[in-house]
Simulated scan of single mutants.
Amino acid sequence: MGKWRDGTGTLRVLGGGPGGDSAKDPDGDFGGGPGAGLESGPRGGPGEEPTGSDRGPGGGPGGAIPLEIAASYRARRRGLLGRDGIAGALLITPTNSVHTFGMRFPIDVAYLDRALRVIDVVTMRPGRLGMVRPRGRHVLEAEAGAMAAWGVRRGVRVTAVPNPEA
């Protein structure tokens, strides 16, 4: 599992997308390991800037979005089951597919590769089984409509900055 641990953190949406550096790697894998998208600070690598200005928690592209990280078997299995909503997003790692059986609300699901680049974004109603994404290594879940508001779309890269352990 590398550096991934259950806990909380901050999610940021970075630039990318069609015509960006996603075109450099035809399979979209970027060769990163389990912690490839973990950053020590709020910005990505050289030349990567947020897609918009900082607008506060969940306020749009580039803003700091509250994040829960589910890396253990138990946390991944539970996911968003039994909840009425989520403030922010849930990163499930490692996984390449999800389901919404037992869910109480529709969710947006972003499938991410090893480098935390978005492979696909779908909205799933409760009681559905998502397709397996073979290149997927992580899944980001949020309430329906949130991904569009944050600027999360195919080809965009996100970063996850874990909160320091207390």
Rank of each mutant, 00 (worst) to 15 (best):
K3R: 15
K3F: 14
R5D: 04
G9W: 03
G9P: 04
T10Q: 11
T10R: 11
L11K: 05
R12G: 08
L14P: 09
G15Q: 08
G15Y: 04
P18F: 13
G19R: 08
K24Y: 03
D25M: 00
D25E: 01
D27M: 09
G28M: 11
G28R: 10
F30M: 09
G32Y: 10
G33Y: 10
P34L: 15
G35E: 15
A36K: 08
G37S: 06
L38R: 06
E39C: 11
S40R: 15
G41I: 14
R43H: 13
R43N: 12
G44F: 02
G44K: 10
P46H: 05
E48D: 13
P50E: 12
T51S: 15
G52A: 15
G52H: 14
R55Y: 07
R55E: 13
R55M: 09
G56H: 13
G56C: 11
P57T: 07
P57W: 03
P57D: 06
G59V: 03
G60N: 10
G60Y: 11
P61W: 01
G63S: 10
P66T: 07
L67P: 09
E68K: 13
A70P: 00
A70H: 00
A70N: 01
A71N: 00
A71K: 02
S72C: 06
R76I: 05
R78T: 07
L80G: 02
L80K: 04
L80I: 02
R83I: 04
I86C: 03
I86N: 04
A87G: 00
L91P: 01
L91W: 00
T93S: 14
P94V: 02
T95Q: 13
N96P: 06
N96F: 05
N96H: 10
T100C: 01
G102E: 10
G102H: 15
M103R: 05
M103F: 12
R104V: 02
R104F: 01
F105Q: 03
P106C: 12
P106L: 14
P106M: 13
A110Q: 02
Y111H: 07
R117V: 12
R117L: 06
V118D: 04
V118K: 04
V121Q: 07
V121K: 03
V121D: 04
V122A: 13
V122K: 13
R125G: 06
R125D: 15
P126N: 06
P126K: 08
G127Y: 03
L129M: 14
V132K: 08
G136C: 05
R137P: 00
H138F: 01
L140V: 05
E141R: 06
E143D: 08
G145R: 03
A146V: 10
M147L: 09
W150E: 04
W150K: 14
W150C: 07
G151H: 10
V152M: 09
V152E: 02
R154Y: 04
G155L: 09
R157M: 14
V158S: 09
T159I: 15
T159Y: 10
A160M: 12
A160I: 09
A160D: 06
A160S: 11
A160V: 10
P162S: 02
P164T: 01
A166P: 15
